[in-house]
């Protein structure tokens, strides 16, 4: 690129155009399936069954969205998902920032090993643990007021939140520890000189500085845990406790599936992750670039 940049701008233009065409093609390639889903969701099933999905519309309406909202019971399932996702994300970030702080700034013995262990944990396929965890959860009793009627970790939100925290902490520690390493050691040293204890070094010096990374991780973790289907279905058996990702299955008929309705439901279910992305977008981008600046 440096060779290109030194040439006169007249020579640079074709490359720019090619780049833009490429970027547009990729963007369209990503957007088309989404737009097609939106288009299908606006049209009645009878029409697309007759004319096919690639045809001009006769009727366009938002009917399927209200139908999916009502028939899928979305409000209830959104709430269930939040009960799982919000505590799981917050706990994950809290724990992992703690561990990362110890590894990156306190130089505990075996810190490097711990970091490698956390990073390696990410490579473990979650499915491998499904059956052992299921058996384990069945055997771990909970008091009745924590989980009724199963009175065990199985079929409880506690269990699902715990497994998400356990799995996601590894990745977050890995990212946060590397990020905290970019924070100049002098800042913490100065704080120590001023008499700050470990808690204050963590809470008042490090945490505010790694906020971009926390924002980025928060977005990612929210999306991952929100989109999870696997653990909730494996570790729970009460239909009314399931997360919103399973609500889409309620829109599928036993024999017949109205794909237009399903498209509307999918868009509604996907919406919150997009919303969170836009809310945390600035942190996200700052986090990405800041993390990469050291190297």
């Amino acid at each position: 690129m440096t060779a290109l940049a030194s040439r006169p701008s007249r020579r640079r233009r074709p490359a720019r155009i090619v780049l833009h065409i490429f970027l547009w093609a990729i963007a369209v390639g990503w957007l088309v399936p989404l737009l097609l889903a939106l288009y299908a969701a606006l049209r009645p099933y009878a029409e697309t069954a007759e004319l096919g999905y690639f045809s001009w519309p006769r009727d366009l309406s938002l009917h399927y969205f209200s139908e999916a909202w009502r028939r899928g019971g979305l409000p209830k399932y959104y709430r269930n998902t939040m009960v799982i996702t919000v505590p799981a994300v917050l706990t994950t970030l809290f724990f992992s920032s703690f561990v990362a702080f110890l590894i990156a700034r306190r130089r505990v013995p075996g810190g490097k090993f711990l970091l490698v262990l956390f990073a390696a944990g990410n490579l473990l396929p979650q499915q491998v643990l499904a059956t052992p965890l299921y058996v384990l959860y069945k055997e771990i009793p909970l008091p009745w007021w924590m989980n009724w009627p199963s009175e065990s970790l199985f079929d409880s939100y506690w269990g699902v939140i715990a497994i998400h925290v356990a799995f996601q902490t590894g990745f977050c520690v890995f990212v946060l520890a590397n990020y905290m390493n970019t924070v100049p050691a002098e800042l913490v040293e100065a704080a120590i000189v001023d008499g700050a204890g470990v808690w204050k070094q963590y809470w008042h010096v490090i945490l505010p500085l790694v906020r971009p990374a926390l924002g980025a991780l928060g977005t990612l973790e929210f999306a991952w845990i929100y989109n999870d289907f696997f653990w909730a279905v494996i570790l729970m058996s009460t239909g009314d406790k399931f997360p919103v990702t399973t609500a889409l299955n309620n829109l599928r008929g036993e024999y017949f599936t109205d794909y237009n309705l399903l498209a509307a439901g999918s868009l509604l279910v996907a919406f919150p992750t997009v919303l969170v992305f836009f809310i945390l977008q600035r942190q996200f981008i700052a986090g990405l670039t800041l993390g990469s600046s050291k190297g």
Partner: peptide, 18 residues
């Protein structure tokens, strides 16, 4: 109520747990 697809796939775990 559990959607029929999940119900069928989970029946083994379901019957063994609660």
């Amino acid at each position: 109520t559990v959607d029929h697809n999940t119900f069928q796939e989970n029946i083994n775990r379901y019957l063994q747990a609660t």
